[in-house]
Design a protein around this nucleic acid. Sequence first.
DNA 1: GTGAAAGCGCTAACAC
DNA 2: GTGTTAGCGCTTTCAC
Lengths: 333, 333
Amino acid sequence: MIDVAREAGVSAMTVSNVINGRPGVSADTRLRVLATIADLGYQVNLAARHLRAGRTGAVGLIVPDLDGPYYAQLATRLARGVERRGLHLVLERTGASAERELEAISFGRLRMYDGVIMSLLRLDSADLEQVRFETPVVFIGERPVPETFDHVMMDNVGGARLATEHLLTTGARRIAVIGGKHDDHVDDMPSLRTRGYRQAHAEAGVEVDERLVIEVESFSSRSGYEATTRLHESGVAFDAAFVLTDAAAMGVLRALADLGVDVPGDAQVVGFDNGTETDFLVPRLSSVEPGNEAMADTILDLLDRRMAVPGADGAAQVTTMVNARLVLRETTR
Amino acid sequence: MIDVAREAGVSAMTVSNVINGRPGVSADTRLRVLATIADLGYQVNLAARHLRAGRTGAVGLIVPDLDGPYYAQLATRLARGVERRGLHLVLERTGASAERELEAISFGRLRMYDGVIMSLLRLDSADLEQVRFETPVVFIGERPVPETFDHVMMDNVGGARLATEHLLTTGARRIAVIGGKHDDHVDDMPSLRTRGYRQAHAEAGVEVDERLVIEVESFSSRSGYEATTRLHESGVAFDAAFVLTDAAAMGVLRALADLGVDVPGDAQVVGFDNGTETDFLVPRLSSVEPGNEAMADTILDLLDRRMAVPGADGAAQVTTMVNARLVLRETTR
DNA sequence: GTGAAAGCGCTAACAC
DNA sequence: GTGTTAGCGCTTTCAC
């Protein structure tokens, strides 16, 4: 920068003013500086700007994974909003490992961003209270977070209840829940969705057969496939499957096709997330739409609010729950 | 840091030495400093470290999109490798817009990373020559890049030829190429894969009916679906479809199911990318495996080499082409 | 084994 | 409209 200044015959300050489009530079000088910048191929040093001015121009999105369609689609929505605000979105993935989640929020790494949107799967509220956050953060996801943070959630329980109610209404009585939990004391995604499943059963006066609650290790298509195969081999009858994610539901559909089970004739299937792929499966997957658009908008509004006031995080903490609805396609009656 | 130093009764330098695990600090002092750091909840300021030391600890991966499975899966592979090297991977998406691609490489934004892996779709070699890259970069993808850069490519032509050869060998004579180009003078992904398709036809002495070359706007499932519907409505007969990406192939399969076309009986289908989802489609999608693992390994090796020598980029530029192979599943005979 | 001084490249605040 | 001064928080260098 100092080179540009010398070459253009002005001070570094004037160059800075030109670069940042600040007023109070004569058109003449501005043009000369711009020409010199182009000439020398000068680029600002963002590290120096960051150190001095405190802002980086980036918003971080920290998510467990990107192979699944859910976070990838959320990222695309958020990116658009962030760019509209003159910033850019940067993603980090933790692979749902506690170690990497901790790394992402430690060593001052969050300070690399002007604001952060974060979905943590392993770390709990207590872990978070250990860390000092200097950056505005909005949490997403089901894990509880300390009271001081903004938090946007989808209605896991309500969405699951909607799906299960529909299955019960259409005559299903033995609904497998793929990815469910036997013990739903924790507030993570599988537990909450299983809770909705149980609530719908309770309201309908139908008892849950615990053998229909199938725990899985991950929510990949492969997991869904294997869980369905196991369930079938166990000989436990079922006339519907509520699958906790669309990705897993894809595996369930594939397994049912292999097993010669007709969908939705012999067994109905409902997924969760309403990803863009649901419309292209054979048969098309009915799914819980967790309010993806509203979610992205709410997250950005909250982050705006936090980022507006530079230092003080005076604004009251907000927890928002986005409404879910059911989208029926071909895997349900 | 100065606070920690004062509190621990040492100099800032010693604190720095402790944080960076440098030798030459007595065990006694080290422990005292670490305790003080924990006490005060101190975190390094990465902006300051970056400014002074030049390194950020991050590797950037800049890709067109993340909704499709391809880049998401590549990112996961690369992340593992990068973490093994004590760094972390950070993603940016450009949405395949020229403007955003330019932004990502301008304003010194690449300097935020110790190394960058980049897939550009819009910018061409001439655009890239304008920009001064201060950061080690490895390019991926099919677009030509200036001779000075390392470049890892998949064998688009060869992979497409393999797929088409197989279809021809199994008796197909009217192979639609969904996403193909009529004019393959440019070296982008659709053109290269179409070139392989044409080569296979030429070798087999089968003429290409240009009405079977279906251009699409994007490679989403929706595009594949619509292209197939259009082709069917046009009344042009086909007995196979080579679809340029798996995501689009998913839409093709869905369309064929809607149209009552039996796969692979009435029409065979082959995709490209061999994503993890291919195994869970109904029917399972045969696909070109572009060497995803080898690709990730090669990229990381090249980046290592560039990042090893801090300033001088003395090492000769390398262009690598990874081999493709065909994975047959249920959509082919 | 530890510390003091200097400076990375930028910008906020204020002087002219 | 433009320049000067100071300092963001680290690490490199060299002295002790």
